[in-house]
Design a protein around this nucleic acid. Sequence first.
DNA 1: CTCTGGATTAGCT
DNA 2: GCTAATCCAGAGC
Length: 201
Amino acid sequence: MMTMGQCPLTTKFMKLKRDFFLRPTLEVAKDLLGKHLVYESPEGRVVGEINEVESYIGQDDPACHASASPKTNGKTERTKTMFLEGGHAYIYFTYGMYYCLNVVTEKADYPSAILIRSIIPVEGEKIMMNNRAKSTTEYLANGPGKLCQAYGLERHQNGIDLVTSDVLYLEDSGKKIKKFQTTARIGITKGQDKLWRFHYE
DNA sequence: CTCTGGATTAGCT
DNA sequence: GCTAATCCAGAGC
């Protein structure tokens, strides 16, 4: 059986491949816990360990941006990224001032994605602090808006293919998270019955 | 064209 | 706990 373990050659960690993202969204979401989100920013390399995610799955999920409306069937200028093949980055703008990063999952034309809500800084903390200079908080990236601010991710990175990109991608840290909490998603008014948020301390 | 509310955050009461 | 900040996508007309 193939494992997603560490690369035996020179690189310490292995980039996640397409197959990882084409699986059922909830499985991908749980497996994303502990993985490294890497961004080769203009200022330098930024790495964080994912410790909180939320799943948004298909036109029937009322909280999903691509939830079906009769006219568009959920596919609009904003949400078309969610209809790409699993492994792409979906970044959207919200509340007039924040960006949120999602990882698209499953096959093309099935709009599903995982919101990366929080990371633990691993590398490039100085860059993150500079990007969030206006804030006094010690927590650099423990929230979807703060995370994008810390990394410096904006509209420009929307639609990047995380599988083929050398700028923004995910890699296996070799760490497997066995114990994590499962709760309802945060900040939504519809679909609160679905326990699709996974996180650990 | 106009209107509404949001997958948030920081700061204040 | 409450809410301002700040803007734009989506829906309705």
